[in-house]
Simulated scan of single mutants.
Amino acid sequence: MTAAGLRRGLVAALPFILSNGLAGLVMGLTYKGLGLGALQAILFSLLLYSATAQAIILSMWASPLPIVAMVIACIATNSRYLLMGAHLRQLFDGLANRKMLPSLFLLADASWLMTSSDAERNGPDAGYFLGASIPMAVGWIGGTALAYVAPLTANGSLKLAAALLPTMFIATLVPSQWKGTKSLWPWLTSGIIALVVARFVDPSWSMLIGGGCGTLVSMMAKTDG
């Protein structure tokens, strides 16, 4: 865990302050519309810290709250982080648990992807993972908090912003994941599918489905090669 890696990760992930901030703002406005207080919403985004899981919970919101179903949905949705965490633990096998476990609290899909890519280029550095994770968390939690002081409501132009979030997410990842023209088709597939799902199905599923389709195209390309 080096200071140079920390700085490199921070710089690489700076765009996520904007993209995650806008996503957190939309999420915070949704919480606000449901009647949650500012502290409740901020703790929600801080402790759960999963856009996909939080979106699924919101889709299940009812009175009375189906707590058991929500917990099961969260566990199922976030189970992928077990594999990501196991991969990082193997990648940083020499790092003490007292440093590794707090860093894993900030684990996100994007920080895992960026860290894996950086490890291939520069060697494993847990500092890079921590540096890449901080702007993402600041944007997400800060955006949620901003919703309670901004004079906005969850309608109108913000619906368009929610639909564009998948594209912003993909755009912030491109610089760290670009590996030449072979990267073009998976990214285009992810972006187009995400926009279609956001427009005609539900924005909360767009990143998951778009990313899955892009991954499938990437796997098929590697198989053909």
Rank of each mutant, 00 (worst) to 15 (best):
N155G: 15
T30Q: 15
I72H: 00
T189E: 11
L91P: 08
G28T: 07
I57R: 02
L6I: 06
S103T: 05
F129R: 03
A41R: 05
L91V: 07
R121A: 10
D93T: 08
C74M: 11
S59C: 07
E120K: 14
R89N: 04
Y148S: 04
A53M: 02
R89D: 04
M84W: 02
R199E: 13
A55Y: 10
D202K: 07
N122W: 07
I17F: 06
V217D: 02
N97F: 10
I17E: 08
G225E: 15
L10F: 13
S59G: 15
L22S: 09
L188T: 12
S190C: 11
V149S: 11
A55L: 06
M114E: 14
L101T: 07
S59T: 11
G85M: 00
A86D: 03
P166D: 02
S19R: 03
C213L: 13
W112R: 07
A137H: 11
M168L: 15
R89P: 00
A132D: 06
G5M: 02
L106I: 00
A51G: 14
S116G: 09
L6E: 03
A110N: 08
W185Y: 15
V71R: 01
L34F: 14
Q90R: 14
N97I: 05
P64G: 06
A4C: 03
T77M: 06
W185I: 15
I141S: 00
L47T: 07
K179L: 14
P102S: 01
A161R: 09
R80P: 01
L130G: 05
G24N: 00
F92S: 07
G139C: 11
T215M: 15
T2W: 08
A4T: 02
L65H: 05
I72T: 02
M136G: 15
A110V: 09
R89M: 08
I209S: 03
L106K: 03
Y148G: 01
T144A: 03
T2F: 04
A69F: 00
A119F: 10
I134F: 10
M219E: 14
A96Q: 14
S103Q: 04
G33M: 12
G210W: 07
A69Y: 04
T77D: 01
A137N: 11
P102E: 05
F44S: 06
S204L: 00
G21V: 01
G142E: 06
P166L: 08
L104M: 09
A12M: 13
M220S: 13
L88F: 01
G5P: 05
M207P: 01
V26P: 02
S133E: 10
T167M: 15
A119W: 09
S157A: 15
L65A: 11
L91G: 06
A147C: 06
S50D: 01
L164C: 14
L184S: 09
A4G: 11
A23P: 00
V196A: 15
S45C: 09
P166I: 01
M168I: 11
G212C: 13
A55E: 07
V201C: 09
G28Y: 05
A147T: 01
D118S: 13
T181G: 12
L34N: 09
F92I: 02
G5A: 06
M136C: 09
V138D: 08
K32G: 07
L158K: 10
I17P: 10
L107V: 04
G143A: 06
A23W: 13
T144N: 14
A132W: 10
Q177C: 08
A126W: 14
S176H: 11
T115M: 05
